[in-house]
Design a protein around this nucleic acid. Structure first.
Lengths: 216, 216
DNA sequence: TGATCTCTGTACCGATCGGTACAGAGGTCG
DNA sequence: CGACCTCTGTACCGATCGGTACAGAGATCA
């Protein structure tokens, strides 16, 4: 790994590297890990192998791992943390729906982690894939409990939610029908709403949380 | 294509070909289209390229297309047709759940069509992928209408069902938790049950339909 | 037996795969 | 200016890719 021990602090974040991640994410999303050839990556990023291997000495595997990390970081700050910490959990859940719709481009985009989960890339990135889905499910369950749901119900609804979102992405892509995603989100929202409404009945007034957008 | 015009009727079904399809299906399921190399296929089938190209002159693409056709044929006879024709639509829907659980090995198996739908293989096999999901959705909607549901509700529930099943397969695979699939099926069943129970209240007694298993 | 046909293994093809090596372009700074 | 360092393009590597060609093994049947 450390073939060339760097003299400067290893923590130095190369400037172009971060900007590369969204492009790489899009490529992996569309072609999967094995389908994303270095030729394609070079073409889409406009970079030669020299630059690519300069930023990612570990090659394709490091690119994919970095992208997964970046995605996880974005979801953590934009969704998981609010779900766990927003004083108004119901608002955080509703913001999650908005953010989810925005992130997946209303069904026109597919979930990279889901793509990896289905393919042989699961073996390589299993820990990260597992962590992503588990974090989403657990953060949502936490919010639902804070909104007043019983633990088992909250866990059930949370599992239902992440599963439903993934399924909507698969079928929307399969049927070339992005609108399907919105319909699935609406159904899911209706399933959670009773819990959220219960929370509203319990607390007087609160909060908000703007829905962020990401290029990842 | 027809480099060697066969003297005998072209419709002759080679004996070993059919037996190959389940193995090929499993390989494509686990590795996706681009991930399933001919070397791997040869190894898993125990056949050399000679035999492979004898049975599938069109190469990998023909193998995948044949597998998709076989899967569609199996689902049609085991699920879609009963959903449309069983005199007791509620029983057909319940049989569909049992067949789905059996087919996907209670969440230990992934959906080939879903795998293809997410990857770049979508472009190659788009028509077949679309047809598979649409047929499932429409057949189920038909059964629900026959069970007494209003058209819009039936269509909504049917879309919900196929989407939910796919999502459960993705997350079960991602979290390495096959039991998740069963829980998702149970939730889905509970969502459909009111319609089915309504049908039971309307008609006196009827039917059955054994849940078949498939190697595909 | 010999002709015929289905099936199979092997050798081989050009293209592409992921990855490495390296020379240097172009900037910054002493 | 020259030393240094980040970034880049290109040439090249062995391995593997999907696909083709073909000689026969083995069964069938006249």
């Amino acid at each position: 790994m450390a073939a060339k021990p760097v003299s400067r602090a290893a923590a130095k974040p190369a400037p172009g590297r971060e900007a590369l991640l969204p492009v790489l994410a899009e490529i992996f999303r569309e072609h999967g890990f094995e389908g994303a050839s270095l030729a394609l990556i070079g073409e889409r990023t406009g970079l030669g192998k020299g630059s690519l291997y300069h930023f990612f000495p570990g090659g394709k595997a490091e690119m994919a791992a970095s992208v997964l990390d970046a995605i996880d970081a974005w979801f953590t700050q934009a969704m998981f943390r609010p779900l766990r910490e927003d004083p108004d959990p119901a608002a955080a859940v509703r913001a999650m729906f908005a953010a989810t719709d925005a992130y997946f481009r209303s069904g026109r985009r597919v979930c990279l982690v889901g793509v990896f989960a289905l393919g042989a890339a699961r073996d390589r990135f299993g820990a990260r894939i597992d962590a992503y889905f588990a974090a989403w499910r657990d953060a949502l369950a936490d919010a639902l409990v804070r909104a007043g749901a019983e633990e088992p119900l909250a866990r059930d609804l949370a599992e239902d939610a992440v599963s439903t979102i993934q399924g909507a992405l698969v079928t929307a892509s399969a049927l070339q029908d992005p609108a399907l995603f919105g319909r699935a989100l609406a159904r899911l929202s209706a399933r959670l709403e009773p819990v959220l409404a219960g929370a509203a009945a319990r607390r007087p007034l609160a909060s908000s949380f703007q829905s962020p957008t990401s290029a990842l």
